[in-house]
Amino acid sequence: MERPLLVYTTFPDVDTGLAIGESLVRDGLVACINMLPGMRSVYAWKGAVERGEEAVGILKTRTGLRDRVHEALKDRHPYETPVIFFIEPAGADAATLGWLLAETAGG
């Protein structure tokens, strides 16, 4: 049985995340993207410690689309090495899961 899947990623800004997220919604690969602006990051990159401002994107999809979402997100993402984490919730509200499955049925 299909299970919900959350995909956590970061973008350089909200507009970039929304554009990529909308394309994934239109393709039926995700039901929704939530963008959280204003994140400040400190991270190690190629031997240096960097600081930057980013926006967090949380995408809602289903486990059966994991590989397709992963490929599409990497293809469309502006970062050389985007952070992409797959988080499998322990469960979901039945109505929420029904909506998620219906909205990604064409993906």
Rank of each mutant, 00 (worst) to 15 (best):
D27M: 07
D13Q: 05
E50F: 06
R51C: 00
G38F: 05
W45G: 09
L100W: 11
T104S: 10
R26F: 06
G17M: 07
E103D: 14
T61E: 08
M39S: 05
V56G: 00
I58L: 14
G52E: 00
K46Q: 14
R66Q: 15
A31G: 14
T61C: 08
L101W: 09
T10Y: 05
L24K: 02
I84T: 05
F85Y: 13
I84R: 01
I84A: 03
R66S: 10
G57Y: 05
P82L: 01
D93M: 09
F11Y: 08
G28W: 06
P82Y: 04
C32G: 08
D75N: 08
L73C: 05
D67M: 06
D13C: 02
E22Y: 01
W45L: 04
L59P: 06
V14R: 06
V7D: 02
L5I: 10
G21I: 06
L100Q: 08
D15N: 11
V49A: 03
G28I: 04
A90Y: 15
V7L: 09
A44D: 14
L59I: 08
N34D: 12
M1G: 15
V30M: 05
T96M: 15
M39R: 01
L36K: 03
G38T: 02
R68E: 12
M39A: 11
K74R: 12
W99S: 10
L36Y: 13
D93I: 11
R76N: 02
G98M: 10
T61W: 09
N34V: 12
P82R: 00
R26S: 13
G52A: 01
D75K: 05
G91K: 08
A92Q: 10
L36P: 07
P89A: 10
A31P: 13
K46L: 13
L97I: 08
V14W: 00
A102C: 10
D13I: 01
S41R: 05
V14T: 03
